[in-house]
């Protein structure tokens, strides 16, 4: 039963990742695409957490942690050097 729930949630999340690609590809603005990356990142983190339990590989939680840390860096890297002086 719980395996079924986990599988269904995993499938739903990967489909959502696919749906999110519409924003990655369609944009229209650069910020939209970066937003889509953020969502894909969080979805991947969710998937990794689910898979960590489903496949009984706790190390995947470490991978999720690493993704979370780099998600903020990507946004920082994107806006780097573009901001106005206050």
């Amino acid at each position: 039963m719980i395996v079924l729930v986990l599988d269904a949630a995993c499938l739903a999340l990967i489909l959502l990742l696919g749906l999110g690609l519409v924003r990655v590809i369609a944009g229209p603005a650069a910020a939209d695409r970066i937003l889509a990356i953020q969502l894909s990142g969080t979805t991947t983190v969710g998937l990794l957490l689910l898979l960590a339990i489903r496949l009984e590989q706790p190390a995947l939680i470490h991978a999720a942690l690493v993704f979370v840390l780099f998600a903020a860096l990507l946004a920082l890297g994107f806006v780097y050097g573009t901001e106005r002086k206050p």
């Binding site: 910020a31 970066i34 937003l35 953020q38 969080t42 983190v45 942690l65 979370v68 840390l69 998600a71 903020a72 990507l74 946004a75 920082l76 994107f78 806006v79 573009t82 901001e83």
Partner: peptide, 16 residues
């Protein structure tokens, strides 16, 4: 960490 990262990331993107 995801909460902190997401709030800062979204703040930066919104400003941008």
């Amino acid at each position: 960490l995801a909460l902190i990262a997401a709030s800062v990331a979204c703040h930066l993107i919104a400003r941008y």
